[in-house]
Computed example of a mutant assay.
Amino acid sequence: MSPFLYSLFTHDCRPADGSDTIIKFADDTTVIGLISDNDETAYREEVDRLAEWCDTNNLLLNTKKTKELIVDYRRNADPHPPIYIKGTAVERVSSFKFLGVHISEDLIWMTNCSKLVKKAHQRLFFLRTLRKNHLSSDILVNFYRCTIESILTNCITVWYGNCSASDRKALQRVVKTAQRIAGAPLPAIKDIYRKRCLKRAGKIIKDPSYPSHGLFTLLPSGRRYRSLRTKTTRYRNSFFPTAVRLLNSAT
């Protein structure tokens, strides 16, 4: 109930400009600003408004725990001046952990994958311990699905499409190791990714109120979906274009 109540009590904390977005979950609030033509006015004013809103509603905004991440692919990008909250500069980072996912400024998922693999390897120790105690293969598989696969596939529809080949191999090696320990076949990470993309796309298609519902448009034939135009490999491998391709290949 805590995340729901927080969102309910802070419903009036909304962005004033269309280029900004405020995401709230539990006691975590994130401000996202789309900067165009080097004009950061709307974004900086949004941060100031958020600080004022916190003061008005008796909420403490911890500047020391606040981080700023800039995603800028321009070759000759001008340096961005720091953000200040009540006279204190916000620390700028190259990556940070957001709801369990490590996001980097270049949107490369090497850090996220390495963290997941490291955490999964720690859980493999317990899987081996269970095997040494002669537990059945079914129990070992259930343990893997609950404690290891859940880690490897956390928010997989967000990051797996743009993972490097080496990162995908590292993730799959964990699965193969667990498979040898459990003595039973386990689903590949790639298959889980495809299945979850299709499941998520199906929910979006059934929900007309979803913000990205319009991206799934049927062709006049009514059988296939219109492909999304992509200019970069990063966008082409992201969730929505991938989901459309998977839906069309499934028909």
Rank of each mutant, 00 (worst) to 15 (best):
M1R: 14
P3T: 07
S7T: 10
S7C: 07
F9C: 15
F9N: 06
H11L: 14
D12L: 09
D12C: 11
P15F: 03
P15V: 08
A16W: 09
G18C: 05
D20M: 10
T21Q: 09
K24P: 04
A26P: 09
A26C: 12
D27E: 04
D27N: 10
T29G: 02
T30S: 03
V31I: 00
V31G: 01
V31C: 01
I32F: 00
I32M: 00
L34H: 04
L34S: 08
I35V: 06
E40K: 04
Y43F: 01
Y43E: 00
V47K: 01
V47S: 02
D48W: 03
W53E: 09
W53P: 05
C54T: 04
N57P: 06
N57K: 10
L59H: 03
L59T: 02
L60W: 04
T63C: 02
T63H: 05
K65L: 11
E68T: 02
E68M: 00
L69E: 06
V71Q: 07
Y73S: 00
R74Y: 14
R75E: 13
A77G: 14
D78K: 04
P79V: 02
P82K: 01
P82Q: 02
I83K: 03
K86T: 00
K86W: 03
G87A: 04
R92W: 01
S95C: 12
F98T: 01
L99N: 07
L99W: 05
L99E: 08
V101D: 00
H102W: 07
D106C: 14
I108T: 10
C113A: 15
C113P: 11
C113V: 15
S114E: 15
S114R: 13
V117T: 14
H121Y: 14
R128K: 15
R131Q: 13
K132P: 06
K132H: 15
K132E: 11
N133S: 05
S136K: 10
L140Y: 00
V141Y: 08
N142T: 15
Y144H: 05
C146L: 13
C146V: 02
L152R: 05
N154G: 15
I156G: 04
T157I: 15
T157Y: 01
N162L: 04
A165Y: 12
A165Q: 14
A165W: 07
S166Q: 13
V175G: 02
V175P: 01
T177E: 06
T177P: 00
T177A: 07
A178M: 04
G183A: 03
P185D: 04
P185L: 03
K190N: 12
K190F: 13
D191Q: 06
Y193I: 06
K195D: 12
C197A: 12
C197W: 08
L198I: 15
K199S: 15
K199G: 06
K203A: 13
I205W: 14
K206F: 08
Y210Q: 13
S212A: 15
H213V: 06
L215W: 05
F216T: 11
L218A: 11
L218N: 09
L218H: 15
L218S: 12
L219M: 10
P220V: 12
P220D: 10
G222R: 06
R223A: 05
R224W: 12
R224I: 08
L228D: 11
R229F: 15
T230W: 02
T232V: 12
T232F: 09
T233G: 03
R234H: 09
R236Q: 13
N237C: 12
S238Q: 08
F240W: 10
T242Q: 01
R245P: 01
L247H: 07
L247G: 00
S249C: 14
A250D: 02
